[in-house]
Computed example of a mutant assay.
Amino acid sequence: MAIEAVTNVTKVQDGPMIDDKPSTIVTLTAQQLRTSKFLPSLVNTINQAYKAAEGQHLGESKGDRLGSIDELILVLRDDPESFIIVLTQPHAPEEVLSTATSRRYFGPSPDANTSPWACVHTPAADTEEWELKLLATSPAAQGKGIASYMLALAEKEATERFRAKSGQGEGAITHAKMILCTPKPLYGKFYGGRGYREDYIKIREKPDMSYEITFMSKVLASR
């Protein structure tokens, strides 16, 4: 299977039962997202989820995680391999209950040394890295195992894209890895329980508090 066959098609599949009602999973590229009916609900769901988590566990909220639809699209970058997964239910098909985004990671960004949320490592020469971004579930749908489900879907999608490039000039790339960063007090145990190991830590300094941001990774596949 060529990588184009994976990235050029909007994937639609059945999701898990939620409150005894079916759900639908849709996987989109950045380009497909630009004209998606999900955009307004996506931004709202992500902002609500982040505010609820920060307020409950950190005693603060940084405000809206996303300020606009354009900012959401920017997270995916122009890499055609980036993707976003959304979960909805048939009775409210445009209302996003949960989402997960992943994009290729090629190395530190220009703001890596100034932003506490930016990765600072360089991928190994034999490893293709995928960066998990914006894993979020609507507060009304939390506590039902949806986040774990969406994380597994993102890992599977990244693995499929990695395997689709086998023999297509990837040279010595033999491993695929998912990386992420998260406030350690919030989700360190969540990701640790799903096979992620801690690689390094940054400190989020605030006038009245500070907390650790953990950078974690998990090997998804080898060839």
Rank of each mutant, 00 (worst) to 15 (best):
M17E: 13
A2P: 14
L42N: 01
A125C: 08
P40C: 00
V26E: 08
D19A: 11
G55S: 08
E131P: 05
Q13L: 07
C181T: 13
A154G: 00
A154H: 01
R204F: 15
Y187A: 15
G107H: 07
S138G: 11
H175N: 14
V96Q: 02
Y149N: 10
W130T: 04
T45L: 00
K144W: 11
H121Q: 14
K218E: 02
M209G: 04
E155C: 12
F190R: 02
G63K: 06
G193D: 05
H57I: 07
D78Y: 10
T182F: 04
P207F: 03
V26C: 04
M1K: 13
R204D: 14
G67P: 03
C181Y: 12
L33Y: 01
L66Y: 06
S222Q: 12
A112R: 03
L39Y: 03
I3Y: 05
Y196K: 08
K133E: 14
Q168E: 14
E170P: 05
K165T: 14
G188D: 04
I84P: 00
L220I: 11
K202T: 07
D70W: 05
V43Y: 00
S102N: 10
A176E: 09
D111Q: 10
I73E: 07
Q48H: 11
A2Q: 11
Y191I: 07
E128Q: 15
M1Q: 11
A147Y: 01
R34C: 12
N47Y: 02
K11W: 05
R163G: 00
A172T: 15
R104W: 04
Y105K: 04
Y187S: 14
F215S: 01
W117E: 09
I213G: 03
K37Q: 09
D20A: 05
L66P: 08
A30L: 00
F106V: 13
E128H: 15
F106G: 06
V75S: 07
R77S: 14
